[in-house]
């Protein structure tokens, strides 16, 4: 019994400094401040290399290796597992694009970009499994992704429906909605970036808190949701929304064209009746 008493006393002494609640806020603050590793001067600008930069470049390297491995020596009838996996992933993206009003050719044009951001965001969110802080906890990362995505959405939808069709989609169903539809293109990137940032940042802080308070067992269990499932979910949501944004423009351009044709038909009928 003496042995156990000594053991518990030693354990308490070991853990007492960790159990004091005063340091937790400082520890978390220390964890969420972006760490800069170095900086380079480019044309007079001081570019900081933060931990997010290093993590995202690491993920890019992993992605490149994966892409080369999965896409090497494609066969007409896939026999190898890796080609089947690659085709399943592309097929999934194709189906999502097709279900949001794109034709097969349009979907094929959209997939390279959309697939890239899907796997990039998913893998960058998964870095927290290895205790590397996910780059999306740095607000610059999701904002940059969202701005690039909204520019891509506008460019691709103009490419698909033409400038005239894009204008028609802005003024459908009535031209009074024009300011709101333009405002929508500024709100979309804000909501995209805040969604990704808030989710990853919140999960990261919670996980840091749990690592500090209960360093055993519990982080592993909660990490299944906050590190893995939530990260994958955010990647899927970002991709799904950017596909939906392109699909929305195509759909309303199509609808407005349909409406104009119907109106023209009605007018023609009226004219014919008047002539008779």
């Amino acid at each position: 019994m003496d042995y156990w008493n000594d053991f518990f006393r030693a354990l308490l002494e070991q853990f007492r400094p960790k159990l004091e609640m005063d340091h937790i806020g400082e520890d978390i603050l220390h964890a969420i401040v972006p760490r800069s590793i170095g900086s380079i001067d480019v044309f007079g600008f001081n570019l900081i290399i933060s931990d997010a930069t290093v993590a995202s470049w690491l993920v890019m390297a992993v992605l490149l290796v994966l892409a080369i491995y999965l896409g090497r020596k494609p066969q007409r009838v896939p026999e190898k597992k890796r080609q089947q996996l690659a085709e399943t992933l592309v097929d999934l993206l194709l189906k999502t694009c097709r279900s949001s009003n794109m034709t097969y050719e349009q979907a094929e044009q959209v997939i390279p970009y959309v697939g890239t951001i899907a796997f990039f965001i998913t893998l960058t969110n998964l870095t927290s499994i290895f205790k590397i802080p996910p780059p999306a906890k740095n607000p610059a990362f999701p904002i940059a992704l969202a701005v690039i995505t909204i520019i891509y959405v506008i460019v691709m939808s103009i490419k698909f429906v033409g400038l005239k069709g894009f204008w028609a989609s802005l003024t459908y169903p009535s031209s009074a909605l024009l300011p709101f539809k333009i405002l929508d293109f500024f709100i979309k990137p804000v909501s995209l970036s805040l969604r990704l940032f808030g989710n990853v940042f919140g999960a990261y802080i919670l996980m840091e808190f749990i690592y500090i308070v209960v360093p055993m067992i519990l982080p592993g269990l909660l990490g299944l949701w906050f590190d893995i499932a939530d990260g994958i979910l955010q990647g899927i949501i970002f991709t799904y929304l950017s596909i939906t944004y392109i699909g929305e423009v195509i759909e309303s351009a199509h609808d407005s064209k349909h409406q104009k044709e119907e109106q023209a038909q009605v007018k023609a009928k009226m004219k014919a009746k008047a002539l008779n």
Partner: peptide, 16 residues
């Protein structure tokens, strides 16, 4: 659900 969930996430960002 994505849009409804977004409001909660904005509040999370605000409270953080």
């Amino acid at each position: 659900i994505i849009f409804m969930e977004a409001t909660a996430i904005y509040a999370l960002v605000v409270s953080l």
